[in-house]
Computed example of a mutant assay.
Amino acid sequence: MKLSAVLTVLFLCISKLAFAESVGFQQFQLASDTSRPLKVSLWYPTSQNSPSESVAENLAFIGTEVIKDASVLPTKHPLVLLSHGYRGNWRNQSWLANSLALKGYVVAAINHPGTTTFNHSRLQASQWWQRPHDLVRVLDYLLEDTIWRASIDAENVSAIGHSLGGWSVMQLVGAQLDRDAFKAQCQLYANPKTCGLADELGLTSSQPGEPKFFNFYDPRIKKAVILDLGGARSFSLKSMAKVETPVLILGAGIDIGDLPQAMESGYLAEHLPLFNRHYKVYEQAMHFSFLQVCKPGAITLIEEEVPGDGIVCKDGSGTSRLKLHQQMFKDIFSFLTHA
């Protein structure tokens, strides 16, 4: 194909997005018959520009400016589902959600009960299969809701996950838990985080109510973005080899004491089919560089409350989290629109 034709195709893909000057924001709770209510946060493009207020901000982290309960631009928008990491929350990738909404996306982030900042229930944490199911529940709701189904392009749905969220998203595109393989890998490469949390996350033995089959593939998910995941070695090689959904794998180059990215993100990249996976490492990024930008003095503030947790605001020397986010967004947006 000639370069001019390629550029034309790329332009047409981007031109379908309804870019916006402002971001609308809503939150609601998705009820459940299984005692697992989900808090959902939505970012989306809007033509309204006031009244503006900050969300996802606290003493340590910078939030984003949104128009609460604004109307959504009247056209079909691509949808992105966001899954946070272990004991994270909907705020963690708010910088990414806001940026995508400005480019015309509807973005839905949820708190996963049991593994979120606000809910440490060991029972819910051990129900590992609920994490991918949480994302499916939100997708089902948005595509069935009278208002949102008119605003979402059901043929353009992607999922993005950080850390344990990346592990959850991978299951939606076909990766499957293999307990025997996971146990063997932990014996070979013992590590304090992924292997150390295995009992809490229900990965070492069968759990009450666990599905008989571990196949959570959802064909509605057309693309997946994996942000420095953990737990890649718990997936069966056979299931990874069969993944056909395009996957962008982004790793953090600086090790923080767990398995280095080459043994997590790199392992995933090694075993996914080459034709549909993209893999990049940010050499100056740390695991938590994918979280919000921290405020000045945040490290000291966090260390005073929980010694050791200040690491969530640390990045590699010679860069800044804002610069890293700019490159990350460029790579993610390019993948979502061009891959």
Rank of each mutant, 00 (worst) to 15 (best):
M1T: 15
K2E: 15
K2H: 14
L3A: 13
S4V: 14
A5G: 12
L7H: 10
T8R: 12
L10Q: 09
L12P: 02
A18G: 07
A18M: 10
A18V: 11
A18R: 14
F19S: 12
A20N: 12
F28L: 15
Q29R: 12
P37E: 09
P37M: 05
S41Y: 09
W43P: 08
W43K: 03
Q48V: 12
Q48S: 14
P51I: 04
S54W: 05
V55H: 02
L59P: 00
T64H: 09
T64V: 15
V66C: 07
A70Q: 07
T75H: 04
V80Y: 04
H84Y: 04
R87D: 00
R87E: 00
N89I: 01
W90K: 10
W90N: 05
N92R: 10
Q93R: 04
L96Q: 12
A108V: 07
T115H: 01
T117R: 10
N119A: 00
L123Q: 08
L123P: 00
Q124G: 00
A125Y: 00
A125T: 02
A125E: 02
W129Q: 04
D134Q: 01
L135Y: 07
R137Y: 02
D140K: 09
D145K: 04
T146W: 01
S151E: 13
D153C: 10
E155F: 05
G166H: 08
S168E: 04
Q171S: 02
V173Q: 07
R179I: 12
C186A: 13
L188G: 08
A190H: 13
A190I: 02
G196N: 04
L203M: 15
P208I: 03
E210I: 09
K212F: 11
F216I: 06
F216C: 05
P219W: 01
K223A: 10
A224W: 08
A224Q: 12
G230D: 11
A232W: 01
F235A: 09
S236Q: 12
V247H: 06
I249C: 03
G251T: 05
A252P: 09
I256G: 03
A262K: 14
M263N: 03
M263E: 10
E264D: 03
G266M: 05
L268C: 02
H271W: 13
L272C: 08
P273N: 09
P273Q: 14
F275V: 14
R277S: 13
H278P: 03
A285Q: 10
A285C: 07
A285N: 07
H287V: 00
F288E: 13
F290I: 06
K295C: 12
P296A: 08
A298N: 10
T300M: 13
L301E: 13
P307E: 08
G308T: 01
D309M: 15
G310Q: 09
I311C: 02
V312Y: 03
C313V: 12
G316K: 07
T319H: 10
L324M: 15
